[in-house]
Amino acid sequence: MSLVKKNHASSGNADHRHLPRDRAGLLRQLQDASPDIRRWAALDLAAFPDTAEALCARLEQETGLPVREALLTTLIKIGGNAVVKGLMPLLRSEDATLRNEVIEALQQLPEAVSPYMETMLRDPDPDYRIFSINVLANLRHPQAPAWLQAVIERDADINVCASAVDVLAEVGGPETVPVLTGLPGRFDNDPFMQFCVQATIRRIQGHDA
């Protein structure tokens, strides 16, 4: 018969795990020339939470997608303040892929991110503020609606406000409606802003159009 039963584990290719798995060894392998070795080192470093800084530093330079994903998976597993502090500066990277990966990782770390949220939302760079709102969009944090409402009350950038409005469509309550109503007026009644505000108010009130 063509179907054969075999033990599930296959001898196959080596996975480089014969190399030392101690902290120092793994940190060294994180800089190895082979992407496979770097990836396995990144995954196994989850056992050493104090390596967050080195992992973030590697992430900034790493060009291999599977290695970056492994680094992010480990960073999310480790979590906590050191990881958030290491990741936040990468939101300013020129590399769109890296920025968006960092946004997703930060979304997975609500407790560690929230203490920084106020500051992030007041950053001088509007793009950075938008990324912060993207982080906030997926946080299960009870403060989220209040933070977003404050953004649409004070922020002078139309795209920052539009991003906040988009998230409010999901998390906003009736108390947000008056602020929303006043928003297009702050931007010359821009048609995009008008549309977003109307759509969001409909969502919040739950009335059919």
């Binding site: 993207n134 539009a162 991003s163 409005v165 988009d166 999901e170 549309f195 977003c196 759509a199 969001t200």
Partner: peptide
């Protein structure tokens, strides 16, 4: 686009 309202906006236009 990852923003629902933005997708709706383009859709409507």
């Amino acid at each position: 686009d990852d923003a629902t309202t933005v997708r709706l906006y383009y859709r409507q236009i």
